[in-house]
Write a protein that binds this DNA or RNA. Structure first.
Length: 939
RNA sequence: GGGCGUAUAGCUCAGCGGAAGAGCAUCGGCCUUACAAGCCGAGGGUCGCAGGUUCGAACCCUGCUGCGCCCACCA
């Protein structure tokens, strides 16, 4: 009746179901239902290109949470969208423009360039959403937002204006980080610091009017900034220099003189020469010093970080590097260079383009963060928002309590234009929601809007509520805010999480999310961050659909990858990437998403889980082939009542294991332990359901003729199909496609819903937990394994039936074995199964002793397998001797423990009891093994 | 300078106070009509090092070492 192919092919299934789900509109969350809301807003991917495997991770985790909660009956909303990613996207488009047309953005002009960026956004954004769909993301697509769409732009203006009116946004001339390549200011967070080997130069500044030719020697790592010095500082209590404070020094190479000041904050007496040059225009410390002492502030660099007109003519137009060389040479010539020593320093680089960042004096817009941070700190202290893993709380708090004002203006073209207009007459800004007609101060009509745009993270900070309709008071906003979980990477805890907290609390008077789950980053197999240059980037689509080496290379070339990268790709993926399907990729990511450690994605793991999907598929095939005459409705009714007492041991066992697994998965998901949940399902389906239950259901499924056999078959059919059905639902959030495909074909009670997506998530039924069945089954498994073990050692193929005698001194155990003889015979391929009390094993048998080890604790069984004529006495002696040695070691350990009075006195009684039992079992086992050896000697 | 993470089988990782686990890889045996992307077995680990706490430590504490992140106005 079923025509399922033998091998599961995700390509035949995944796209089809995704389209079907979209058509059925099952991803939609309606604000008008009485169900409890569960909201996740997506961390909007940048529209810089396509998604990488890191995105696949968040998409998987968020989809698992969303599908899980949706099945639990929540009104689950996963709100999708993308981020314009100002500087990053602009850079990508600029590079492309240069590569393809050798043009700069200035060549095109602002309007035409923005046109290009929008085109790029269209393409890239579309591609990203496509990728999410391929992964199976159950986003509510009609709600999709983009940070620069009309509604969100309105939210940005509203937020800006309100903060400005509240005095929380201001404009000031300050020292900021300047990227000479991007020609823009950057926030502190956008500067990456790397340790670099530099030098510390000692430079002599002659003291003005000093009769004895006294010189003040400063130490500096940046001699070229000397041209902008406006003071020299010493420690006010430094005996060596105290007399100089208040006098002036001659600034070399410039003809200027500068004051000598005392400053205990800036100067560390122990460091360097004890004197510091002060350049308030190009150093953050010096800037503060300048403010303290009212020093002049000179900028000697222009926007390209080249020397400007404030520098002496000889240096103008030089780059910082050239200027440094020239300054050093000139100082040397003047006899003012006193020496140099190696010195480590940290170099600030632009996060996006890697250019060395220059501290520059500049008029910019800032957010005053202090008042915003306070509530954001309190909310976490009060537990209104909680971090998972919890360690991140500390990081968040540390940053929040030391927060600095946030420079939000960027001299870029791509982004939200700052809603400030400058008056041609009085120069004052008018900040407004809509283009103002006249200057708010003087009424002048000629206004010009600020050219700059806002930091991309400004709009991101509003994301949890701007996407729900803010600043309007919408039903959506009231229903879905605060969101339930913010799931994102720990790398953007400051950039994004902290700022959402501040803005959410400020504008919504409530936290933006109840839980922040921070996942680890995906790195390659060697722990290296994935990068295009390293050629170790994995595109989720390649894992899902597969890619040959040629395809990988072609794609990398298309992205403008350097030669080195192509070589690395050849090395990293010599065979390309085999197609695994979205389910397998998702399961891999979930299984590896342990908290607190970066995820080294190994393709071999993906392959393993592809096999898992196939395994499940074949279990379903088997099930469907064996359901003739099965009635789902009848079974459903029966399981609630009379059928239970007719269930076989295997049936009761697997139902019990299923309940435990369901509980385990539930617990794990509640705690965001995706890996534990995945592992529990994997183990259940493969090790328990497939390896044991299906095997022992086979005889029952084939039975017919007698009413007893019919009943047994009916029970097995019911358990088989209903267990698989529940397992599919349990697995669905992890592997949505294959579970839907299978579930659709399984018999279900009539009236059940049209998609697994909207059925109920399994809830553990404690009445089906059956400890006795689990114990009995463990016994059966032990006996079967013992038989298989000997079979394997003696190279007796599975086709050869064996005669087995099970011996136990325990009458109850014997009864158990007798009761389940059929199961043992089936699984172990045993012809004759005799049960006997303990004693001499039958002639011609080899014996496997059960009991006394971890897996068989508490069992007292000998399994004697008849291998008449095949017994290799020498080999058998080795086997037993090995076993004996190990057991003797166990015994010695137990003895040692029990001989210690402290153990017996202080360990919990149960543990002591356990140890005593172990001791006894070891002794027993040793006796049996010795008897076996003796018996062997008589052969 | 502060903070955080991490070190467990050849590889990628679970386990985090009471007898060392999974997947992949390896070895042996099986085409047992759900699955060879499979089945049945096997081998493989002084759980980074040194101390300490405890009756008992892979697990808790301290120190050290290696690797990796983050923060900091490290002339």
């Amino acid at each position: 009746m079923n025509e399922l192919p033998k091998v599961y092919d995700p390509a035949q299934v995944e796209g089809r179901w995704y389209r079907e789900w979209i058509e059925q509109n099952v991803f939609h969350a309606d604000a008008n239902t009485p169900k409890a809301p569960y909201t996740i807003v997506i961390p909007p991917p940048n529209v810089t290109g396509s998604l990488h495997i890191g995105h696949a991770l968040f998409a998987t985790l968020q989809d698992i949470l969303t599908r899980w909660r949706r099945m639990q009956g929540y009104n689950a909303l996963w709100l999708p969208g993308t981020d314009h990613a100002g500087i990053a996207t602009q850079l990508v488009v600029e590079r492309r423009l240069w590569r393809e047309e050798q043009k700069t953005r200035q060549d095109l002009g602002r309007e035409a360039f923005l046109e290009r960026v929008w085109q790029w956004k269209q393409r890239s954004g579309g591609r990203i959403l496509e990728q999410l769909k391929v992964l199976g993301a159950s986003c509510d697509w009609p709600r999709e937002r983009f940070t620069m769409d009309e509604g969100l732009s309105r939210a940005v203006r509203e937020a800006f204006v309100r903060l400005y009116e509240e005095g929380l946004i201001y404009r000031a001339r300050r020292l900021i980080n300047w990227c000479p390549r991007c020609h823009s200011a950057l926030s502190d967070l956008e500067v990456e610091h790397t340790d670099t080997d530099g030098k510390l130069w000692h430079i002599a500044y002659p003291v003005e009017g000093s009769s004895g030719g006294e010189r003040l020697v400063v130490a500096t790592t940046r001699p070229e900034t000397l041209l902008g010095d406006t003071a020299v500082a010493v420690h006010p209590e430094d005996e060596r220099f105290r007399h100089l404070i208040g006098r002036r020094a001659e600034l070399p190479l410039t003809g200027r003189t500068i004051p000598i000041i005392g400053d205990a904050v800036l100067v560390d007496r122990e460091f360097g020469t004890g004197a510091v040059k002060v350049t308030p225009g190009h150093d953050f410390n010096d800037f503060e010093t300048g403010l303290r002492h009212g020093l002049e502030m000179i900028s000697v660099f222009d926007a390209d970080a080249k020397l400007n007109e404030n520098a002496p003519a000889a240096y103008r137009g030089l780059t910082t590097k050239e200027a440094r060389e020239r300054v050093l040479a000139d100082l040397k010539a003047a006899g003012l260079l006193q020496g140099e020593e190696p010195h480590k320093l940290s170099l600030g680089q632009c996060e996006r383009c890697g250019t060395v960042v220059e501290p520059m004096l500049s008029l910019q817009w800032f957010v005053k963060t202090g008042p915003l941070a306070r509530p954001a700190i309190e909310a976490v202290e009060q537990g209104k928002t909680r971090f998972v893993p919890e360690n991140w709380t500390k990081t968040y708090m540390h940053w929040m309590t030391n927060i600095k004002d946030w420079c939000i203006s960027r001299q870029l073209w791509w982004g939200h234009r700052i809603p400030a207009w400058y008056c041609a007459a009085c120069q004052e800004p008018t900040v407004a929601r809509e283009t103002p007609a006249a200057c708010a101060r003087c009424g002048h009509k000629e206004l010009r809007q600020d050219d700059d745009v806002l930091d991309t993270w400004f709009s991101s900070a509003l994301w949890p509520f701007s996407t729900l309709g803010w600043p309007d008071d919408t039903k959506d906003l009231r229903t879905f805010y605060p969101t339930s979980v913010m799931e994102t990477g720990y790398d953007i805890i400051f950039f994004w999480v902290a700022r959402m907290m501040m803005m959410g609390l400020h504008f919504m008077k409530d936290v933006p999310f109840q839980t922040v789950f921070l996942h680890a980053l995906v790195v390659d197999e060697n722990g290296d961050k994935m990068s295009k240059v390293k050629g170790n980037v994995i595109d989720p689509l390649d894992v899902i659909h597969g890619a040959t080496l040629e395809q990988l290379l072609t794609k990398a070339q298309g992205d403008g990858a350097p030669k080195e990268a192509l070589e690395n790709i050849k090395k990293n993926f010599p065979q390309g990437i085999p197609a695994a399907g979205a389910d397998a990729l998702r399961f891999t990511l979930a299984a590896m998403a342990a908290q607190g450690r970066n995820i080294r994605l190994a393709l071999s793991r993906v392959e393993g889980y592809r096999h898992f999907a196939n395994k499940l598929w074949n279990a379903a095939r088997f099930t469907l082939m064996n359901l003739e005459g099965h009635d789902a409705d009848r079974w459903h009714d029966e399981l609630g009542s009379e059928a239970r007492e007719r269930l076989g041991l295997g049936d009761r066992w697997i139902l019990s294991r299923l309940q435990r697994t369901v509980a385990e998965v539930d617990q794990a998901l509640e705690a965001f332990k995706f890996n534990e949940a995945a592992q529990a399902i994997y183990r259940f389906l493969w090790t328990e359901f497939c390896d044991w239950y299906i095997e022992l259901a086979k005889p029952a499924l084939q039975g017919s003729g007698t009413p007893a056999a019919e009943t047994r078959r009916r029970m097995a059919q019911g358990v088989l199909s209903s267990t698989l059905e529940v397992a599919c639902r349990l697995l669905h959030p992890f592997m949505p496609f294959v579970t839907e495909e299978i579930w659709q074909q399984l018999p279900r009670p009539s009236g059940s819903s049209g998609s697994i997506m909207i059925t109920m998530y399994p809830v553990a039924d404690d009445t089906l937990i059956d400890a006795a069945a689990e114990r009995s089954m463990a016994l059966v498994q032990q006996v079967v394994t013992a038989v298989r073990n000997l079979r394997s050692e003696y190279h007796v193929g599975p086709g050869v039936p064996l005669d087995v005698t099970v011996m136990s001194a325990d009458a109850a155990t014997r009864a158990e074995v007798e009761a389940h003889a059929e199961l043992i015979q089936g699984l172990g391929r045993v012809r004759e199964l005799q049960v006997a009390p303990r004693g001499e094993p039958p002639h011609g048998t080899v014996v496997s002793v059960i009991g006394g080890d971890a897996a068989s604790a508490g069992m007292d069984i000998d399994v004697a397998v008849n291998l008449e004529g095949q017994i290799d006495v020498a080999a058998e002696r080795v086997r037993i001797a090995k076993d004996l040695a190990k057991t003797e070691k166990d015994l010695a350990q137990s003895q040692a423990k029990l001989e210690k009075p402290s153990f017996v006195e202080r360990a919990p009684p149960a543990v002591v009891e356990e140890e005593r039992r172990r001791l006894a079992e070891s002794q027993d086992r040793i006796a049996k093994l010795k008897a076996s050896l003796e018996r062997l000697g008589r052969l």
